[in-house]
Design a protein around this nucleic acid. Sequence first.
DNA 1: ATTTTTGTTAACCAAATAGTTAAACTGAAC
DNA 2: GTTCAGTTTAACTATTTGGTTAACAAAAAT
Lengths: 202, 202
Amino acid sequence: MMVKQESTEEKITAAAKKVFITKGMMGARMQDIADEAGINKAMLHYYFRNKEKLFEKIFTEAFTSFWPQINNILDADMPLFSKIESFCHSYIEVLLNNPYVPIFVLNELNRQPAMFIQKVWKSGPPKVGSLIQQIEIDVKKGKIKAINPVQLLLNMVSMCVFPFVAKPMFQAALGMNELQYRQLMEIRKVEITRFIIDSISK
Amino acid sequence: MMVKQESTEEKITAAAKKVFITKGMMGARMQDIADEAGINKAMLHYYFRNKEKLFEKIFTEAFTSFWPQINNILDADMPLFSKIESFCHSYIEVLLNNPYVPIFVLNELNRQPAMFIQKVWKSGPPKVGSLIQQIEIDVKKGKIKAINPVQLLLNMVSMCVFPFVAKPMFQAALGMNELQYRQLMEIRKVEITRFIIDSISK
DNA sequence: ATTTTTGTTAACCAAATAGTTAAACTGAAC
DNA sequence: GTTCAGTTTAACTATTTGGTTAACAAAAAT
């Protein structure tokens, strides 16, 4: 049986990702990461100079791995309703596969707002203009109800992301297990889309 | 001119609140809190035995100070649409006065889900049943469109809270300053209410 | 006035934790 | 098989940080 060979560097990044995402920059211990990777702590400093460098790599990697997936939809050439559907479905699907990333990103972001904008969005800032314009046009044409495009955008993102950020709270409040919550999110893809379109349709 | 006298204990709790909320439990340093309060570090241990005790006090205080404000609305005896309006207005108003509390709570909650449910919700668990029932009844009566009550609840909470949790991100993406963002939230009280009611109205 | 209790401080301690080093191991090139 | 660069390890160091202590000051009780 073939065993996938994993380089030490890969072991480290995988372990660091897990530990940083679950415990945050301040909560993570270098020893935890070493243990998780099953290697000596000194290796962390051999491959990455220090904790900060390692963290930065993981953070940007985690963020840039799923950010484009959402960002591109905003820029796609589609009718508004299709775009809304596509956005909700893709966003929730991505989050189902990376449920702990948003709280991680938001948390670190609140501590270092400047770093974020500078380093993480230098390459791919949010392509939000296209959607905003599209909404404005459809409002003017009378295709949808009058609504502030920014508010609509906030609504869309909020409804997709927040249930993942506040998962433990909702789970406790609603008395749901992992599977039930996951199913709720699965259904949510279509429920949210309908909810939004119902609201803005004339 | 009268100067308000602040006891050492009050100085500590005020400083601890500020530091814990901005840096989190793990990120906060006892020395930071002492400096912020303008006192000797030993005083922290004199009034509160250790960091954990101090943190717990701040956490529960921060949480229980605004949780009931929202929770009670869920239980109020009102028609559904009024309740939705009341909920959105109150929730956002409370958050405008405590903008950093949600990310703080959610963050610590993700690290200690058990502690939360046990200690913080022992006294006042979410009164969510009343609203759920109310939605179900109005759906059956045909007063509103068919919708999963839980999903509607998630939508309401998400749209209210998330813009505060992700404030730095939205602010950067939309190029807004503090005042502009605040105004956006102010408007949001009524915009969100309308958005929801438009969606579920027949 | 004197004692006792409470509040406050600087200096110190112990544990945790990031980071370093020197030696040992490995595997390929010669 | 010797050498040599890259890799890995155990032991160590330096620093940070939560927590303690003993002396001191202020206030309250006697």
